[in-house]
Nucleic acid binder design. Sequence first.
RNA 1: GGGGGCGUGGCGGAAUGGCAGACGCAGCAGACUCAAAAUCUGCCGACCUUAAAUCGUGCGGGUUCAAGUCCCGCCGCCCCCACCA
Length: 824
Amino acid sequence: MSYSKETDGKWQKKWAETGLYKYDPNAEGKKLYCLEMFSYPSGAKLHLGHWYNYSLTDSWSRMKRMQGYNVFHPMGFDSFGLPAENYAIKTGIHPKDSTLKNIDTMEQQLRAMGTTVDWDYEIKTCMPDYYKWNQWFFIELYKKGLAYRKNAPVNWCPSCKTVLANEQVVDGACERCGSEVVRKNMTQWFFKITDYAQELLDDLPKLDWPEKTKKLQTNWIGRSEGAQVALYVEKDGKRLENEDGTPVKLEVFTTRVDTFMGITYVVIAPESELCEKLTTDDCREAVEEYKKATAKVSEIERMSTTREKTGVFTGAYAIHPLNGRKVPIWAADYVVAGYGTGVVMAVPSHDERDFDFAHKYGLDIIRVIQSEKSVDDELPYCEKKGYLTNSGEFDGMEMHDAQKAIVAKLAEMDMGKWKVNFRLRDWLISRQRYWGTPIPMIHCPKCGVVPVPEDQLPVELPYDVEFTPDGESPLAKCESFMNCKCPECGGDARRDPDTMDTFVDSSWYQFRYCDNKNESEMFSREKIDKLCPVDKYVGGAEHACMHLLYARFFTKAMRDMGLLDFDEPFTSLVHQGVILGSDGQKMSKSKGNTVAPDEYIDKYGSDVFRTYLAFGFAYTEGGPWSDSGLQAIVKFFRRIEAMIPDAAKAASGVPADLTKDDKELNYAINYTIKSATNDIERFQFNTPVARLMELLNAISKYQQTEGAKPELYRKAVETLLLVLAPFAPHFTEELWCDALGNGYSIFNQKWPECDESALVKDEIEIAVQINGKVQFKVNIPATADQDAVEAIVKADSRLEGALAGRNIVKFIYVKGRLANIVAK
RNA sequence: GGGGGCGUGGCGGAAUGGCAGACGCAGCAGACUCAAAAUCUGCCGACCUUAAAUCGUGCGGGUUCAAGUCCCGCCGCCCCCACCA
């Protein structure tokens, strides 16, 4: 019988019946928690990317199982989210119905893949038994002051009267109706991730994560050291004061406090509340006009330095605390409200953006830094070195000394201090959507914002809701949901109409797997202590800054609440690459370049497909899809099958006396074991398959030699099967158990170990180079030291010709590799 | 705009700073066959009739006995940027 998809079904059934992959917490072996990022059931089926991620991580965990680890390998579905809701709006099929149906299909497909997933630990985030704990944890964060409300902008379509996701905004217009999208402020919930900014940064070095991912997070957190300094404000000719009579301070953050004496204007983000307060009546109309215009521009565009800067004078002035200079306050959209204080001090002489802006609007430019004393550089001069000028008492100081002096002086006046600022912003979690976890908060006219009491959780998401967009959050229109009693005063109150960002679900699911049926706790401390943190986490690199940062934040917050006792959720992380369409473009239905795995599984079986995915790509790189290599795997399998009848004739073993041919095969066996084990360990899957093909070639060659020993032949074939097993579990199980008559199951066998003595060769060939260029090759004893090799090389008749009259200056021998002669 | 990555034969891709192109696909030639398919064997970076030599990892510099690999500067392509998950 040759391998086909029937083989898959046969063994999947047996594995299930015998519970081969059931996780037993008390089993022998070191615990190993292997996790892939769970999938979002938006499409009806698993796509190629899922296969690439799940089948190969499964191969990795199969090797670890065979190596004796007690592997925990669960799977679930990230099943709340926007696409199901959009699909519902389009088709009228309820998100719950479509989602649960998709999950069923995807479970079937995952089973057909033949993974080691233990389905007893499955989770689905859209079910109340899961999202109840989102709500519980939200309230815990609220109690700790880590969840709070504030105003924040949303994308708003004035025609659909609905909030839009970034992806629903195409070129500044609503994707449904084409109306121009504006930004609008709403009161929304935030999680205070910024409280953990420093720790999130500090713990990165100890993680076994790709360096690029750590770099991305480092830049995303964006720590910068500088100073927060203040200016006074003059409006309508008077010093602006607070209600208590103290002067209003305009706070700005700067990393270049040495240029403080060069301020010629101040810029404020137009949408900030302070801008409203500063604007004079004369200028109000112009500022309002400007605010309307900037509301249409996205934040990414605003940050662009090539885009021509625009702005408008607010009518107010800032008063410099050290020299008393009166400088205009402008509103301009190159300042972002969410970063720092939303106000920037402008020093056009030493900042390119300020320089351009000052030039355009005819604002003053005063030089305060010189690269060398008395050298007037061309402006803007933005190098971070030099000496102060035009800065009064600070003139002549080196800029870093000047920074200290200026901050010290401002601190004395209570107008400045050193400050560390982060680019990271708090996590906005409110979504004005239906298909998500309801926010467990009640708004009482008397008591204000009140959390839902724990015994009333979960706040269930109602099924019958009108979710066509018509100006309100879908839940806001559901009266039976919205109306409730205030837990404090018992009076009539309303629920929060928003749902949570689905990233909340995925920030702690890795812990829920360990205790997925717990009804009284989010998870038990005992189970978490035993299984967590996750030892190996595998998923796409696109999550580097969001999911992976949020999950780290949750873990740290949970630790501080005593829910668990470690600092990081994912000890080791791997990103799989992206498989592109055969045209080299990202796969998408609209481009028509998608690859449907199901068709290939029907035709070739799961194992051919899995092994091809391993062999055809560099795992962490991915690349364009091509069918052509699949046939190579079919051929590879066939050649293995052809070896079985002869292998079945003898018992497996390594004979005591080895001939040259025996030694060669034994070398191939052990070299395969050694390199494949190393490569699989580090998630490199293409080279192990290549090594197995080499082993196959070596076995073929050996079979044709005279005096080939049947027991060694069988040993070689069995090694081939064992090392191939993680990639082709059904195929190898069939050959191992049924064709060779070994005991069930191949996955209960020990992973083969390398016999290092088989890798020791008596004689090796090395290259001889002169000045780095290969001249000829010599055979040397493997144990030869540098002196011995030098003697052999110097005695070689070819050396003189290669030297061509040059003298040997130095002789370098790199053990087992080559010799290099430096000659002049 | 900011951030991250990548660039090696016709193609997918190998290569702890140490003989570039493992393994495979495609191609070419041969064996088997009435024939084809399948299978097996050999060849397969460029230049060159062949051999030898030379050149060769996007381009230009540098470090080193030795650079695809490390450093600097370009060019090209791809990904991410907080309401897609």
